[in-house]
């Protein structure tokens, strides 16, 4: 890899010297915000508040890596993924793909960009149109982008199905005839049709049986090797991403609270929230498991409509101090490549 594309460390968020060296930044997200308006009114509705689903998120994704994005349900992971792909237009902030700003793309240029970035969805039952045959589903990206003749498309579909481990014979079938794992493979074939380099996988395995989860994870890893893919892998529980991801970002209530390389995060979690999450993960080593102390978080996640002042974790944090209720902690690099947003960790 060429040295020229590497970023100067000082300005990079969430990267280690060792890790980032020589790596090309594929996607760079800076201060991304996505607010959903809440409307109400007697006759005509006006905006009265906003759900701050994503509230100032910054990170980089390096080419060829898998970045995990972890957090509780409703913390804004999916919204982050969708906003990066411009399925939601961001309220503010920037998303750069290979250095090009994509939040302001429209029309044809946006369509061209979509060939580069794709998404895999959580619910294998909702992500395939029940009224379309598998062949049409997988060929849809090709049709939309007007690629190839009908014959060529058919060949490509067969190739894609084979690639994800499905029998090409199934093209005339309809989604309801397939199991969850098979459907997830069909969805994967669809997202690979355009040869993308970046894939947002939004909890692709959490709706599947445990036995099938491993198969899909293996498939994802194999495809990454074969096709040189880059993943943003969204999950709601840390144990799932441990051996799949190179780095992991932990999200809470619309913000990233900690980013580190996988091993580092697991062995040395610094943010109280990450610690609490990890304390709930069983450890295979019996000796460690014995000593494991569970940190149980009290209370509920506050509403993203009006997050608490200061650190937004302060309502549940076991170690909060006065300043936590006043000022919001910045995401800072406390160890090489290990970024944390907490007043107690400096």
């Amino acid at each position: 890899m060429s040295q020229a594309v590497s970023e100067p460390r000082t300005s990079s968020v969430g990267a280690t010297a060792a890790y980032a060296d020589g790596k090309e930044v594929l996607v760079e997200v800076t201060d991304l915000k996505k607010y959903f308006p809440i409307k109400s009114g007697i006759l005509f509705q006006r905006e009265v508040a906003a759900v701050k689903a994503v509230d100032g998120v910054s990170f980089k994704v390096y080419k060829g890596e898998t970045l995990g994005l972890v957090g509780e349900s409703g913390c804004g992971k999916s919204t982050t993924g969708r906003t990066i792909l411009q399925l939601y237009r961001p309220t503010s902030g920037s998303v750069k793909y290979r250095g090009q700003e994509i939040t302001n793309l429209k029309g044809e240029s946006l369509r061209r960009m979509r060939r580069e970035m794709q998404m895999i969805f959580q619910d294998p039952y909702a992500s395939l149109n029940p009224r379309m045959s598998v062949g049409r589903i997988v060929a849809e990206p090709l049709v939309v982008h007007n690629i190839g003749t009908k014959k060529e498309r058919e060949e490509r579909v067969a190739e894609l199905l084979e690639m994800v481990g499905l029998n090409p014979y199934f093209v005339r079938r309809y989604p309801h005839e397939f199991s969850g794992g098979q459907r997830q493979r069909i969805g994967l074939a669809r997202s690979l049709a355009l040869n993308p380099s970046f894939i947002v996988a939004d909890e692709p395995i959490s709706a599947l049986d445990v036995s099938i989860q491993a198969q899909v994870v293996n498939l994802l890893q194999r495809l990454q090797e074969e096709l040189g893919l880059t993943y943003l892998f969204i999950a709601h529980d840390l144990s799932m991403v441990r051996h799949l991801c190179d780095r992991v970002a932990v999200m809470y209530l619309g913000k990233i609270v900690e980013i580190a390389e996988s091993e580092e995060l697991y062995t040395n979690p610094l943010h109280p929230y990450t610690q609490a999450l990890l304390s709930a993960v069983p450890v295979p080593d019996p000796a460690v498991e014995e000593k494991r102390q569970r940190i149980i978080l009290k209370g509920d996640v506050p509403s993203p409509i009006n997050p608490p002042k200061g650190c937004n974790f302060n309502t549940r944090c076991p170690v909060s101090i006065d300043v936590c209720f006043e000022t919001e902690p910045e995401l800072v690099e406390v160890l090489p490549g290990h970024w944390v947003a907490c007043h107690r960790v400096i």
Binding site: L87, R114, F121, A126, S127, H145, L194
Partner: peptide, 20 residues
Amino acid sequence: KEFVEAARAVGASNRRIIFV
């Protein structure tokens, strides 16, 4: 529904999303 989102992610036009 996610399949509509998927179509959008692929770059399908509004017309295609409505009719297909």
